[in-house]
Design a protein around this nucleic acid. Sequence first.
RNA 1: UCCGGCGUAGCUCAAUGGUAGAGCGGGUGACUGUUAAUCACUAGGUUACAGGUUCGAGCCCUGUCGCCGGAGCCA
Length: 499
Amino acid sequence: MADTVSIRSLQERLEQVVSIRGWLYGKRSGGRIAFLLVRDGTGLCQCVVEAAQAELFSAAESLGQESSLMVTGRVRADSRSPGGAELAVTGLQVLQSASDYPISRKAHGTDFLMEHRHLWLRSPRQAAILRVRHTLIRAARRYFDDHGFTLVDTPILSPGAAEGAGTLFPVDYFGDTVYLAQTGQLYLEAAAMALGRVYCFGPTFRAEKSKTRRHLAEFWMIEPEIAFAELPELMTWAEGLVCAMVGAALSERREELALLGRNPAALERIAPPFPRLTYSQAVDLLRDPALHRKLEQELEADRARLKTLIPELAALDEQLSRARQGWQQDKLAQQAADLRERIRDLEAQVAQRPIHIEHARNFAWGEDFGGDEETIISRQFDRPVLITEYPRRIKAFYMKPSPANPDVVLNLDMLAPEGYGEIIGGSQREDDLAALRQRMAEEGMNPAPYEWYLDLRRYGSVPHGGFGLGLERTVAWICGLKHIRETIPFPRLMGRIYP
RNA sequence: UCCGGCGUAGCUCAAUGGUAGAGCGGGUGACUGUUAAUCACUAGGUUACAGGUUCGAGCCCUGUCGCCGGAGCCA
């Protein structure tokens, strides 16, 4: 009886007879030889069946993509097999013979792939993303665990809405309406007063009707909350967390990042200290004529690039019209489609840029940053940027105003580079009972459901704060993905709940 | 909610208002080392749906539905 081993470990089994279990990823056959490409979640292995073994050969030839099987054979080194080792098959047990697997090893549209998300996960690219995601989660948890934090799970069902009830999902709770949590923060504050340093990691829910590449209705957030921490300390924690996550991806997931086409150089630059701006400094930056000149130069550069892309596309179309073989045609058509998409994106950017510049020029202190302002600011730096002290009026009631300027609060946002947007939002909390009550009154909030929260200020209140990191946006940034829907196994998007 | 784009074979896409097509995938056959193998043959269609204009509609018009991503809002 041969040992059953993982494909990843085949290199250590050269010349031995072993079995592997997995799924048929691809198949090619000649008149007297058949190649089965088997995947098992740890790697890909080419399995060779020769026609001399008539029964094995006909069984191998009849298998459809994604059939599940156990293959036994002698391991031999061969550079033509994906993992460097192939299996000379002596035994083949078909667990289930599959036919008409919907996802071929070819280009598909996003709608089709999303409808088949449960199968799409089997493709190498999606599996790579899930591995990076896993590594980032582990790195974040390890970072907190190693720094004296205690994991505290906060409830998912929460009574009444803290702010903007329209952004919460209502749920029937024994006849009452409650809501799916959009943060564990208030509960974490209670836990921080018990344990000092705490964090939670769980799903959060937003009912915002946002249909963009940066939004999910259900996403995972890592939230630390730290007793005695004031704003500067919070920034250090945020920086440390992000560096720990990027570092783990670089040290443990090089292969996956390469498969995803992510240039590691952009990630290797990520080191503390991150640039820090106050909101007011960011506004000055937006209004700075030097920035506008720079943006206009970039606009010219993009226009020039667009001019080079268009002949490139024409050349590709020309090649396409001359291509003979079907799959070459298909490949070229795919390249042409990709290029067309890049051109469309670039054209849209070029068209939008003057509007963005105009927005930046006219940006008034007190407004919140929109996506285009965030993009402009984050593009000025080659690593994540921290922005602090936003106007009090656009921020939540629990944020502590700055003692130096009560018009701003002691909050922090972190913008990821390359236009990936906000990945962290947090603040030092208001720890004074009277001030907190006043802020709640200003917001027109009923204090009754928050008496427990106010208790935290009645009994041994201390300065404290925390922040939340959006896992999926971080995964998208680190993997260099165009869309957040690939960062989570089963994305919940507005208008999509299947599968 | 608003703005814009798209909807043709299982998939990816073609088709001046005038005979609905190609590649991939499926099926059959050929081929001793393939790398999205290749070659030959073959099956496969209510052109999203409902109206309208026209001698004639995949194409033009109106409405509905679905999908996409941008604004607002947010991580």
